[in-house]
Design a protein around this nucleic acid. Structure first.
Lengths: 99, 99
DNA sequence: CCAAGTCATAGCGTTGATGCTATGGACATG
DNA sequence: CATGTCCATAGCATCAACGCTATGACTTGG
């Protein structure tokens, strides 16, 4: 620990690593969620700071999240969802049954 | 760090804490997911060890997860989902528009 | 009764997400 | 230009999830 790399590069790196199939997925999910939240936030005309205070976090945390800087944890999603008057849905859906 | 309490009690505690609205939700989600995975696993007639090896983790990790011992992270869900031939869905769904 | 398989937990080191503060740049506005 | 707002990032501390090993309780089959 001490590689000292910014998470933008970190993300790209994650996508490229071998055996990063799931990591890739998680990163993609993080990205999607970030976009979703950003959209919902903007729809409400809130600044990152506004959302941050409503979700009991800081502006920087919101920025990091929206940029997909880290794969969010469920508790954080809950807080953001609440602030945005939404619900979090986490499910495992069986993949298309063998055709 | 060093309270030294088992997570069964930890969970109950989480549910009771003040301002634990989101934490409660997260805990509930963890519980639901655990049950879902257990069901899917049993449907396939796999032991926790079987699933563990397929998901690149240990039996104890699977047990902890199924019991809702911790709020799982998305990467872990991915690995389990893959092992179970499923997909992970994480979404923020706008709550019912004011009636 | 003994052996093997299954599941639950404890304990502990590691790692990564989160919390926070402090900047810096971009943009508007006076 | 001086201010103020908004967003992006760096850097660091802390905490909880994870990974793993080792048991213990139970069940089942010899």
């Amino acid at each position: 620990m001490s590689e000292r790399i910014d998470w933008k590069e970190l993300r790209n790196r994650r996508m490229a690593e071998p055996g990063a199939a799931e990591a890739h997925e998680a990163t993609r999910i993080a990205y999607e969620l970030g976009k979703t939240v950003r959209t919902m936030r903007e729809e409400r005309g809130w600044s990152q700071s506004d959302l941050a205070s409503r979700a009991a976090m800081t502006q920087s945390a919101v920025a990091r999240f929206e940029a997909g800087g880290t794969v969010p944890t469920i508790p954080v999603l809950e807080r953001l969802a609440r602030a945005l008057d939404a619900d979090v849905e986490v499910r495992l859906t069986p993949r298309a049954p063998a055709a």
